[in-house]
């Protein structure tokens, strides 16, 4: 009984996901790209870098990278806390 309920719920959610996927726009034709076009056009003039992705990560969206570094630090601290040696 419980297993059938779980299976039915999973099938509903998975069918909804696949339906969403089939209903999306065609692959390879993004609709909103003005901001990315600005990054591609002006990265070499503003940041003087060839790699647009690195320019976005470290310059235009530096705050995101700061938060990411914070998350990494927190995860390392958490692992060190969990895996410490317990004295009995």
């Amino acid at each position: 009984m419980k297993r059938w309920f779980v299976l039915a719920a999973f099938l509903v959610v998975a069918g909804f996901l696949v339906l969403l996927g089939t209903g999306m726009r065609p692959f390879g034709a993004p609709k909103a790209f003005e901001m990315d076009q600005y990054f591609i056009d002006y990265t070499q003039a503003e940041v003087a870098a060839n790699n647009v992705v690195t320019a976005v990560v470290f310059d235009y969206r530096g705050y995101d990278t700061l938060g990411e570094a914070t998350v990494l630090f927190c995860a390392v601290v958490g692992v060190a806390l969990i895996l410490r040696k317990v004295r009995r």
Partner: peptide, 24 residues
Amino acid sequence: NTAGTLPLMNWAVGLKVIAGLGSV
């Protein structure tokens, strides 16, 4: 020899990731 602070930030983040994943 281009890109301003980007290579320095790459080294900083690289050091951080090396140390973080290495200590894990």
